[in-house]
Nucleic acid binder design. Sequence first.
DNA 1: GTCTATATACGGATAGAC
DNA 2: GTCTATCCGTATATAGAC
Lengths: 210, 210
Amino acid sequence: MKKRPTDTPIDTSTEEKIKSAARTIFTQKGYAATRTRDIAEEAGINLALLNYYFRSKEKLFDIIMLESMQDFIHSITGVFNDETTSLKEKIQNMVNHYLDMLTNQPNLPLFVLSELRDNPGDLISKLHLKENLVQSHFLKQIQQAIQEGRIPPIHPLHFIMNLMGMIVFPFVASPILKSIGELDQSAFLELMQQRKKYIPIWIEAMMKVK
Amino acid sequence: MKKRPTDTPIDTSTEEKIKSAARTIFTQKGYAATRTRDIAEEAGINLALLNYYFRSKEKLFDIIMLESMQDFIHSITGVFNDETTSLKEKIQNMVNHYLDMLTNQPNLPLFVLSELRDNPGDLISKLHLKENLVQSHFLKQIQQAIQEGRIPPIHPLHFIMNLMGMIVFPFVASPILKSIGELDQSAFLELMQQRKKYIPIWIEAMMKVK
DNA sequence: GTCTATATACGGATAGAC
DNA sequence: GTCTATCCGTATATAGAC
């Protein structure tokens, strides 16, 4: 089960070319707005070949979708379950990790969240969220800190929401943020880099509130 | 206290019935996945009538989309440009306002942000973001506070991103959050109500960081 | 204004040659 | 495995009766 970065398609097999193209188009436009013809063109192959390899648009989509979500979740579980790092270090690692990831794949969260809107039950269950997040070392550390009175006794999900919101939201809302801030792409990315430094500090300040 | 878009609207004209139905379906499923037949059925009218009033699916969508975005932006401009309130009060008002709005229309942000992904230029320009946000009293107060050294000298957009991220993100990611937190709908809404109290405090704590 | 019936286009999928 | 040509369901849009 080796993992290959999506930006370096070493595997030039037809199957992988199609998957790579599908990932690009699906992520940009979503399932319904994507035409299999566009995927075929992007992959530089014929439409019939797509069905030869993947049987149907929907089956191809399911594969891409599952992999995308695993990218999103899996990539962080290492950070979350590293028993050698403190809560503070985990937050810094998570911020760095996600901000780099989203810089490379800015469309990923909106894609995943949009497609999740309807079919919540089925797909989510395949991600093993329970083991990877609910029972993570990260969450245990939060709960312990609450018990010891080092952070206020609120639902840990608030911290997750704040952290993820501050990291992910700017990418999800980038068109409107660029517009109101009158930023071009590089200025936007510069702000995102700044956030690597700021977000951990902000989170820490929030956690000290009583 | 849930608002139901399908309730009989005050304006019972056919045109308004179609628009109301369109708002519901488009917001749930997005443009591409929506079928005009579904809108007609939801509106309790015939498919042909939809084209009689709005010429095409796309023209109908453009109207709904513009109104949705205006809902989202316009509703806040009153708060942002109230010259009688302090920065702190504006933040509290904004949090209350948006959390109530999103509780009633939880699908709105994902809809708007998804559909904005591709056509950024055109639609955004119609919202008068410049007058309503860029030149708002809210932003002026932030800039003044920075000059007076009361908050750190960072790009004001960081505060906007943090504030909006903390407010909006939980609704955008609600399926996954409910799953990892093992929350049902009412428990989720309970958390959202708690955030009315917490977010202003958190933001204030963040702003004091140097 | 509102309906039924239909034209037209588009997109997913397959047949069959190579 | 890969292509060209084509089928066929589905969805938008219109024609025309009432």
